[in-house]
Structure formats: C-alpha cells, structure tokens
C-alpha cells in the first residue's frame, strides 16, 4: 500500500513538468556534442549494415557480434600489452598513439575476419542453394546468437574489467559543452573512416564492383564482375569499419566488452542506417550522428527512461514521410 501511495506521489510531482524545456536549452550544446560522439560510433557500425544490405538486400543482424568481437580484440590487445584494470596509466603521447593504432588494427582484423567467416559459413551455403530471403534473415539472427554464446561460454556473463589508456580531459568549452580530447578523437577519426569507406566505394575499381553488384547482380556477373568476391569484400569492409568503431567504443566505454554488449548498439546502428536511408553510405553517417544527438536531446526533454522511445518514434515518423530514409537508398542507384 505504502508502495503504491509513494509512486503516485512521485508521479504527481513529475506530471507538472513532463517536458523539460529548460534542461533542453541549458544543455543544448553539451548534449549535442555528447550525441555526436556516440552517434559517430553508431555511424561506423551502420555502414556495415548498409553495405551488406545494399549488395545482398540482407539485414545482417549478426553485425552487432562482428562489432563486439572487435571490442574483445581491443580489450585483449590492451591486456597483452601489459595493461591491467584500474586507474588510467600515464603514457607518453607517442606511446599512446602507437598502442591505440595497434589496437585499432587488431580490432579491425578480428572484426573483418569474423565478418568473413560469418559470410562463408552462414550465408554462402544458403546462396548456393538459392534459399529464400527469409532464410537469410533467420540465419542472421541465429548466427548472432551463436557468436554471442561463444563469447559467453568463453568469457562468462560479466563485462571485461575496464582497461583504458586515455583519460578524457577537457580542452575547451562551447556553450554548455566541454569539448574533451576523446570526443575530438572519436568524431574526427570516425568521419575520416567514413570518408575512406565512401571513397573506396565510389572511386575505386573494387567499389565499382560493389556498386555494380548492388545495382544488378546478374548483369554485373555477365560483365565480368566476380560476384562472390565482391560479396566477401563487402562483408570484410563492413567488418573493418565495425572493428574501428569497437576501439572508439572501448575508449569511451571501457566496460563495453560484454558478450551481449553489441545487441542494443547493433539495433541502434541498424535504426541509424534505416533513418539515413539503408544502402546509402552518406545516409549511414547522417543517420548515426542524428540518432546520437536526438537520443540525448530526447533524454533532456522527457527524461532518461525515454531514451530508446524517442529514437524509435523519430524513426517511425521519418519513415512515414520518407519510406526510404532521409537520403534514400542509393548504393544500387546508378551514379556518374
């Protein structure tokens, strides 16, 4: 009884300000910057969903596990370098950069390999037998669970204990936002990674192959494009980007290496890809950043418990008016 009365009391207290515009305005810059930081991680993961969807019209739900394998790779790299959980060590800048570069390379390789194995083991046999699209989708969900359980059996249910090399420090402030070194690294590096991916797809021979297969697999094959190789390549590129995202994620959230830690992030990144227009590289970037920022502002306006609701209501609204996402599906569209 007491329980019921006090919840009613709290409900009454909050009902007179269910939308908190003051917090929204006061913290506009802080939440925007924070959202851009996390959003750029969404964006990098979203690229993997978008690339695979563009080429195979497959929602690769196991991509969240490709990402989390990268997070474990990052953690193990730090661990094998001799770092242990506890307070952040003081490192010389050169050393720090070397270690982080090593970690990103390892993470990208592990995620890329995971994606490749996933493609070979789970999806290729289905393709060879001409399985219907639904079979791919169910396989993707199954593969996601299998990859999760492997981690679970090996490392258990707890997150790996936090190891961090770079302590965030505030460099300068913009309005209510303190810009930290970590924020700059994550946002700038993510945008650079996106630029590389975008250039790769739009400017190189391999990229042309990816676009050709996305447009029309049969014709592309007739024109001498090796479709199987292109599909492998697409998975690997998506995996590499997820690996890079994993390092940034682990720098921001060192407790991130947990067997099911990719799930929620994967769903969000997938939503970001759809928001921007799935199959569209620019859309993935825009969708990721937008989702990150809006999640934060949504929390400021309505409270932390509405975080996911705000994000998905927004997604539904956008899809009502633009069913193909903000920028539309474009990987398969002919472009000069």
């Amino acid at each position: 009884m007491h329980h019921v009365v006090s919840s009613a009391h709290i409900l009454a207290q909050e009902s007179d300000s269910w939308i908190n515009t003051d917090t929204f305005i006061d913290l506009f810059w802080a939440n925007t910057i924070g959202g851009l930081e996390y959003g750029s991680i969404y964006a990098l993961i979203a690229l993997g969903y978008t690339l695979v969807y563009g080429v195979l019209k497959l929602l690769n739900f196991a991509h969240s596990e490709v990402f989390i394998y990268g997070a474990y790779a990052t953690w193990f790299t730090f661990f094998l370098l001799g770092f242990r959980p506890g307070p952040t060590p003081e490192l010389a800048t050169g050393e720090l950069i070397a270690f982080l570069l090593l970690a990103v390379v390892v993470a990208m390789l592990v995620s890329g390999t995971t994606a490749l194995v996933l493609e070979r083991v789970a999806y290729r046999p289905l393709r060879n037998r001409g399985a219907p699209r639904l079979a791919f989708l169910i396989t993707a969900i199954g593969a996601s669970l299998v990859l999760q359980q492997i981690l679970f059996l090996w490392r258990g249910g707890n997150a790996e204990q936090a190891i961090r090399l770079l302590r965030p420090e505030t460099l300068f402030t913009v309005g209510s936002a303190s810009i930290q070194n970590l924020t700059i690294i994550i946002v700038v590096a993510s945008i650079l990674m996106w630029l590389v991916a975008d250039t790769f797809v739009n400017r190189t021979r391999f990229g042309r192959g990816i676009r050709a297969v996305a447009q029309d697999p049969e014709t592309a094959t007739l024109m001498g494009v090796n479709k199987e190789r292109i599909i492998m390549l697409t998975f690997v590129v998506g995996g590499l980007l997820a690996g890079a995202a994993a390092l940034f994620y682990m720098m921001k959230i060192p407790q991130g290496a947990q067997y099911n830690g990719g799930f929620l992030l994967g769903i969000k990144a997938f939503a970001a890809a759809v928001l921007g227009g799935i199959g569209n590289l620019r859309g993935a970037l825009l969708g990721g950043l937008l989702l990150g920022v809006i999640e934060n502002h949504g929390q400021a306006l309505f409270g932390g418990e509405w975080r996911d609701v705000v994000a998905f209501v927004l997604l539904v609204l956008v899809l009502m008016f633009r069913p193909t996402g903000i920028l539309g599906e474009s990987l398969g569209k002919a472009r000069v």
């Binding site: 917090t23 006061d26 913290l27 802080a30 939440n31 924070g34 959202g35 930081e37 996390y38 209510s176 921001k252 959230i253 407790q255 991130g256 099911n260 830690g261 929620l264 999640e295 934060n296 502002h297 929390q299 400021a300 409270g303 932390g304 418990e305 975080r307 996911d308």
Partner: peptide, 20 residues
C-alpha cells in the same frame, strides 16, 4: 532525479543533467 535503463552503457545526457 535521473532515470537510466538496464544494460545502458552510455550516460552522457544523464551525466550532463547531473553536472548542471
């Protein structure tokens, strides 16, 4: 009085509100 969700790992909006 801030609210977070089970399995959440990113708290920047909540942290900013507390800071303010």
């Amino acid at each position: 009085n801030e609210k977070v969700k089970t399995k959440q790992k990113e708290f920047s909006a909540v942290v900013q509100s507390i800071k303010a």
